[in-house]
């Protein structure tokens, strides 16, 4: 364990270092949003608990399963390209993109139902946070998918190899970040009360 780990653990962050600057900045942004939600709730506990019950937790649950699986596919894509299998890498990425699309569709259905009930940013403080946080995350899924789409195209075009796979790791790292913040967001907004 000790010898192997010490060799292994000397690696730099996967992908381009610049994406990590961005990921850390994004994590700070989401961290501030989560903190703001939690502290806003602490002064309106009843309101938050009551409003949270009106959400359909099943949507959040399904979307978490989808995004976690999508993130897993991206991890497999990275392993494939490290083994030099470009087409397999492309297939994993395409599957991950498909799941990203499913996430967006499901979230739009949920938004549609919210709006059909007349819920808006002005309804109350809980819905303001719920809509703002999930929409802000929604935009990150869109951006993550745009990045993955480019990486997928390049993977199928044979632009990556076992020796050159920084691009896959770069795009993948961002996608994992989108997954990571959703896991926290799901627990915070849909479940914890």
């Amino acid at each position: 364990m000790h010898t192997e780990a010490s060799v292994d653990s000397a690696q730099p962050l996967p992908g381009d270092f610049a994406i990590w600057i961005f990921i850390f900045a994004e994590l700070v942004v989401f961290g501030v949003l989560f903190g703001a939600y939690a502290f806003a709730r602490s002064t309106h506990v009843e309101l938050f608990n009551a409003s949270q019950l009106t959400l359909n937790r099943a949507y959040g649950f399904a979307n978490t399963l989808i995004l976690v699986t999508s993130s897993y596919f991206v991890a497999r894509a990275t392993q494939s390209i490290k083994a030099g299998r470009g087409t397999a890498c492309g297939n994993w990425l395409a599957a991950a993109l498909g799941l990203g699309g499913m996430f967006l569709v499901l979230k739009l259905v949920e938004f549609h139902q919210d709006f059909a009930q007349g819920i808006s940013l002005s309804t109350n403080l809980f819905y303001m946070f719920y809509l703002a946080l999930t929409f802000f995350h929604f935009m990150h899924v869109v951006m993550g998918m745009a990045i993955l789409a480019v990486v997928t195209y390049k993977a199928y075009a044979g632009r990556y190899s076992a020796a050159n796979h920084t691009g896959v790791e770069t795009g993948g790292s961002y996608w994992h970040m989108v997954d990571l913040v959703w896991i926290i967001l799901f627990a915070l907004v849909y479940v914890i009360h």
């Binding site: 292994d8 653990s9 000397a10 690696q11 730099p12 962050l13 996967p14 976690v68 993130s71 897993y72 991206v74 991890a75 990275t78 790791e169 790292s173 994992h176 970040m177 997954d179 990571l180 896991i183 926290i184 627990a187 915070l188």
Partner: peptide, 21 residues
């Protein structure tokens, strides 16, 4: 549970278990 999930994503999906401490 959420923090454990987050750490799993960080370690095994992002692959940070292999990077510098």
């Amino acid at each position: 549970l959420t923090l454990v999930k987050g750490q799993l994503v960080v370690s095994y999906f992002m692959g940070l278990r292999r990077v510098r401490p």
